[in-house]
């Protein structure tokens, strides 16, 4: 299970659910001066989409290895993609490449090879902007994800199953999220069930980050335990990536949940969830 090679014959799907509630406008970890959670998450998401485009790039083309969707949930529940991709729930990765909202010129620091850093100008494609308005209709977002993925798994029975990554900072206010989450996790291809990863961003610098817990008892309250139940166990390849990035072993059965994620935690969790480890050498 979870070993199907990702190819044009058998692509896979990444569906991001992004909390657009008003609380996402607070600074990450509650520290004044930090970027707003909504801005940081949007930036991290744009970088992840960029990485997916690069990994699907082969010579002069972008191969259809992935379909990608971004569903925002706040004052409305709908695709967060804009421009030519507006209203599209799932978009082929080559179309993502063709239709960013804009390409920004940014400056990033790179090693100069002799211990220092140099500033290099770089192109930064933007597909999603930060939004923070409304409540947290997470159940509606998960139900929409279920609707999208039910069709997808039927159309791609031999593919590596879809990965849902839910980026949030709070509690659903439209019901019990475990119900639609179970429906998603029950969807399957021949290679395994759909997986849900939850990245819960921290609102308080003193709160302890909990990464890939093994047991619901490791979590502090009812809400976090619900998030534990919603999240799937990490797949073997996700565990390998986690160990590579974090330098510590991740046990079989550990859930795909980062609770009270700090800046690095959000970035790492996104990479662990999306690294296309199954493209054959």
């Amino acid at each position: 299970m979870y070993s199907a090679e990702i190819s044009r014959m058998n692509p896979t799907c990444f569906l991001f659910l992004v909390d657009h509630s008003t609380s996402m406008q607070n600074p990450i970890m509650g520290v004044t001066g930090n970027p707003k959670k909504s801005e940081f998450v949007a930036d991290a998401l744009n970088k992840v989409i960029q990485s997916l485009v690069v990994s699907a790039s082969k010579d002069m083309e972008i191969r259809k290895y992935y379909q990608v969707g971004v569903i925002g949930y706040g004052f409305e529940v709908k695709s967060a993609l804009g421009g030519d991709l507006a209203e599209s729930d799932l978009v082929w990765i080559d179309e993502m490449y063709e239709h960013p909202l804009r390409i920004e010129d940014r400056v990033k620091k790179e090693s100069d090879g002799v211990g220092g850093f140099i500033e290099v100008s770089t192109k930064f494609p933007v597909w999603v902007d930060a939004v923070s308005r409304g409540q947290t209709p997470m159940c509606a977002a998960l139900s929409k994800a279920h609707e999208i993925l039910a069709t997808w798994v039927e159309e791609h029975p031999q593919s590596y199953p879809p990965t849902v990554i839910n980026l949030t900072d709070g509690e659903a206010n439209d019901g019990d999220v475990r119900v639609p989450a179970e429906l998603i996790k029950s969807l399957a291809t021949e290679d395994g069930n759909c997986t849900i990863l939850t990245v819960h961003s921290s609102s308080n610098e003193l709160s302890r980050q909990i990464v890939f817990p093994l047991d619901a008892k490791d979590l502090p309250d009812h809400f976090s335990r619900v998030m534990f139940e919603v999240s799937s166990p990490l797949t073997p390849k996700m565990r390998v990536t986690s160990e590579e990035l974090m330098g510590v072993p991740v046990e079989d059965g550990a859930r795909g949940l980062v609770y009270n994620a700090d800046i690095a935690g959000i970035v790492q969790a996104l990479e662990i969830g999306t690294r296309p480890a199954n493209i054959q050498l």
């Binding site: 790039s57 010579d59 002069m60 490449y97």
Partner: peptide, 8 residues
């Protein structure tokens, strides 16, 4: 080169 190609 297109930006993904240049990165690759």
């Amino acid at each position: 080169l297109p930006w993904p190609t240049a990165i690759k």
